[in-house]
Amino acid sequence: MTANQTSQPVTVTLASEPAGANSIDDFELFYARRAVARFRARLGRQGLLDLLAADIEEGNAALRESARTSDGGFTGGTTVLATRGLTSGEFLGWMNKAFADESVLLAAHPEHYTITNQEDGTVHVVENVGAHVASFYLGGWGEEAMTWAADAEEVLPEAEFPHKQATNLFLADGTIIGRVLIQFGDTEEGFTSSLSVYLPTTCPEDVLEGHLQHFAIEFRNWITAAAAARG
């Protein structure tokens, strides 16, 4: 180590940055989101699907194989978010309307490629599941999905988390590649979101962890968008 080197981690900040001001990370996030929005708009939904066709085929094949080798078994994980200044009812009311606007749904995560309502009531999603780009459907909301969710270890008391939704994630051929259980309960300051995902047991651990991070990003952005709409 030379005389002018230290063992401390290297950090770079704005020398003139006052407390509470936007950081360089904030600047980068703004411009990254703007770039992603531009590419989405220029390519369009079908253009994105065409561009990602090979990635989707590879990702779906990997998840299908995980489902086959897991023989119906799933491993779960949960992301918990704490929100202040907004109630769960306000958020869910906004969210129900947001599902009619694909642009709002896509804006919540850079790896959202298409989220479209289908005539049969399912939702077609193309997004990353871990490192895999996958094309799948959300379906089985309500009583059908809650049949399996009722026995999940992650189910929270109804009195504290009265808002619950559960669904299966399945490929076009019907293969179930995952499940989701989301639960919301109000607190004195706002509400808590308990966001659980279940993937086939043979999926690598980083795939599950990646989707838990995905949850944190998209739901934070949806919650802040709901708050902004209310204001």
Rank of each mutant, 00 (worst) to 15 (best):
V36P: 03
T79F: 05
A54R: 14
D101R: 13
L86M: 13
L86A: 04
L14Y: 04
G89V: 08
E57V: 15
A61V: 07
L14H: 02
L48V: 05
L106R: 04
G140S: 06
E58K: 15
E28C: 10
P18R: 05
G77E: 02
H124I: 02
G76Q: 01
F27M: 11
A19P: 10
R84N: 12
G121N: 04
V129G: 00
H132I: 04
L43H: 06
F91Q: 00
V12K: 01
E102F: 05
R84H: 07
Q8E: 13
A145D: 00
A107C: 04
A62M: 07
E144K: 12
F39L: 07
T6K: 09
N22C: 03
F30W: 10
D26H: 12
W94C: 04
I24D: 01
H132S: 13
T87Q: 02
N22A: 14
A131R: 15
G44V: 05
S70Q: 00
E17Y: 00
F74G: 01
V123C: 12
W141Q: 13
A62G: 01
T75Q: 09
E28S: 08
V104A: 15
N22F: 05
A41Q: 14
E127C: 03
E143G: 02
A3D: 14
F99N: 12
A53Q: 15
S135R: 01
Q46V: 10
F99Q: 13
R40K: 08
T11W: 10
D50L: 08
T122E: 05
H132Y: 15
H132E: 15
E58I: 12
G20F: 07
T78K: 05
N96A: 15
L52M: 09
L92V: 08
A145N: 00
A19L: 12
G130V: 02
A37V: 04
G47Y: 07
A131Q: 14
V12G: 00
T114L: 07
N96F: 11
W94F: 15
I115H: 11
A32Y: 09
A82T: 14
G76C: 04
A61S: 14
P18G: 02
E28V: 15
L43N: 06
S7R: 11
G140H: 04
L14Q: 04
I56Q: 01
Y31P: 01
R68L: 13
E58Y: 08
V80T: 15
L51G: 01
E144C: 02
Q5E: 15
G76M: 01
T2W: 10
E90A: 15
Q5K: 14
V129P: 00
E65C: 03
A62H: 08
L106E: 04
T116I: 08
A82P: 00
R68P: 00
